[in-house]
Amino acid sequence: MGNSKAYPVLRTTDAALAFRQAERLSALLTQRDGEVELFAELRTIADVRQMAAVLPEPSFAYSEMHIGPAGERSFELDVTTADDATLEPHLPLEVMVDVPRGSVEDHFVAALGQGMAGIDWHGSWPEEPEDDLHGSAKYDGVQVVFHGDHAQLGRWTEHHTVFVHVDKFGDLPRARKLAAHIGSAVLDEPQLGW
């Protein structure tokens, strides 16, 4: 039981750089999940249309800030056929989808708007018994949060943050080693992860 510990290892205002560094880290995972999780808050009609064009069979929902007219979270309109005037009152929307690893992540990043978004890669860090570092498939992974600095998606920021997730006890030596792999360091205390 419990959540991973998420260490921030990069903050930048360059979304493409954050994505590339997160990808570099995710390449170190062993026993990688075949899917990645994508999340985006869509604040504008353009954001919705761009994500609909990029994601395979996206399922949109009302954002936590905007509940549907009858208190619902699910969103049933077809965004590819609805006109702008029909979509506008429903904004902001959210989309969350699991996609095959390596399939659309770069297009997803290119389609990002100004809303918060994230990509999660799950797997297991390699066993390194000589340094007493052990992987944990339940906790390990990489996360990039666009326009945010909290692994649990908190407040909006100008910058993007890359996190490495380690076991629930907070494997700081592992986090430091991973940060060094991208020429960085652990930036803050660990946060509650997934």
Results as ranks from 00 to 15, higher is better:
residue 25 L to S: 02
residue 90 H to C: 12
residue 96 M to A: 13
residue 144 V to W: 05
residue 110 A to H: 01
residue 192 L to C: 02
residue 4 S to N: 02
residue 118 G to I: 01
residue 75 F to H: 10
residue 24 R to T: 15
residue 23 E to A: 10
residue 17 L to Y: 05
residue 134 H to C: 00
residue 20 R to E: 15
residue 112 L to C: 08
residue 132 D to R: 14
residue 54 V to S: 04
residue 165 H to E: 10
residue 34 G to E: 15
residue 108 F to K: 05
residue 117 A to M: 12
residue 29 L to K: 02
residue 14 D to E: 10
residue 192 L to H: 10
residue 138 K to V: 05
residue 180 A to G: 10
residue 98 D to K: 13
residue 4 S to C: 01
residue 138 K to I: 06
residue 119 I to P: 04
residue 39 F to Q: 08
residue 178 L to T: 03
residue 1 M to R: 08
residue 60 F to P: 06
residue 16 A to K: 14
residue 4 S to V: 01
residue 51 M to R: 11
residue 110 A to Q: 07
residue 179 A to T: 09
residue 139 Y to L: 00
residue 53 A to Y: 00
residue 163 F to H: 05
residue 118 G to F: 15
residue 20 R to L: 09
residue 13 T to A: 11
residue 156 W to Y: 02
residue 26 S to K: 11
residue 54 V to K: 03
residue 171 D to R: 04
residue 125 W to Y: 03
residue 67 I to T: 14
residue 24 R to D: 04
residue 66 H to Y: 03
residue 147 H to K: 05
residue 131 D to Y: 11
residue 183 G to M: 07
residue 127 E to K: 10
residue 11 R to G: 00
residue 173 P to L: 07
residue 14 D to R: 08
residue 141 G to L: 04
residue 101 R to E: 11
residue 83 D to R: 13
residue 190 P to K: 11
residue 116 M to Q: 15
residue 32 R to H: 09
residue 153 L to A: 07
residue 176 R to N: 12
residue 17 L to D: 13
residue 124 S to D: 08
residue 28 L to S: 09
residue 146 F to M: 13
residue 119 I to D: 08
residue 66 H to K: 13
residue 164 V to R: 09
residue 176 R to Q: 15
residue 83 D to M: 08
residue 128 E to P: 01
residue 133 L to H: 03
residue 184 S to A: 14
residue 150 H to M: 07
residue 92 P to S: 09
residue 78 D to Y: 05
residue 2 G to S: 06
residue 78 D to G: 03
residue 187 L to Y: 01
residue 65 M to W: 12
residue 78 D to N: 15
residue 193 G to K: 08
residue 185 A to P: 00
residue 132 D to A: 14
residue 74 S to P: 01
